[in-house]
Amino acid sequence: MEFIIDSVDNTIELGRKIGSMCKPGDIFCLTGDLGTGKTHITKGIAEGLNVQEYITSPTFNIVNEYHSGRLSLFHFDVYRVSDPDEIYEIGFDEYIFGNGVSVIEWANYIEELIPDQFVHIKLSKLPEKGENLRKVTIKYFGNRYDYLKELSI
């Protein structure tokens, strides 16, 4: 499915709708160039999970944990990961196979570590159509994510 988003607020709103539908163990893999809105959609997912903490990109930590919502949120940023062993050292498997929701920014950097069932959210700039326009393409792998068929903005 594809959505054309015209503002940061609408990017967050799409994430909020996704977050409100999330189930334990869900994995969201975000890809897109710098500045396309990966962290904004993550902020929305956190709001949809009722996470109370302020969401920041874990660029230097690899993962930030948020436990105040209806489900725990594990927010990964693997942009600076140079070796997949770095991910294993922080307990990656325990996070993604646990009962929280995992959001992985720059997931294309660790494709070989992603389980078979996940949601891929690709964000792309559409500068030819306007400075703030983004195309958000959502594709899911696994029947567990059939609930996303109901997603609309």
Rank of each mutant, 00 (worst) to 15 (best):
F3Y: 12
I4N: 14
I4D: 12
I4L: 14
I5W: 03
D6T: 12
V8W: 03
D9A: 11
E13C: 01
K17G: 07
G19T: 01
S20T: 08
S20W: 00
M21E: 12
C22W: 05
K23T: 13
P24H: 02
C29S: 07
D33M: 05
L34M: 10
G35H: 12
G35Q: 10
H40A: 11
I41A: 08
T42V: 09
T42R: 03
T42G: 00
K43R: 15
G44W: 09
A46D: 06
G48C: 06
L49Y: 08
N50L: 07
Y54D: 11
S57A: 01
S57I: 10
N61I: 01
I62W: 06
V63H: 06
R70M: 11
R70P: 13
R70F: 11
L71R: 05
F74C: 12
H75Y: 01
F76K: 02
V78S: 05
V78E: 04
V78D: 10
D85Y: 14
Y88W: 13
E89N: 07
E94I: 13
S102P: 00
S102T: 06
V103I: 13
E105K: 01
A107N: 02
Y109H: 12
E112A: 11
I114Y: 00
Q117M: 04
F118S: 12
V119G: 07
V119P: 01
I121M: 11
K122A: 14
K125C: 15
K125Q: 14
L126T: 05
L126A: 10
E128H: 12
E128Y: 11
E128D: 13
K129L: 15
E131N: 15
V136L: 07
T137I: 11
K139R: 13
Y140L: 04
Y140Q: 01
G142S: 03
N143G: 07
N143W: 00
N143C: 03
L148N: 08
L148F: 07
K149T: 14
E150K: 10
E150V: 12
E150C: 05
L151E: 01
S152V: 10
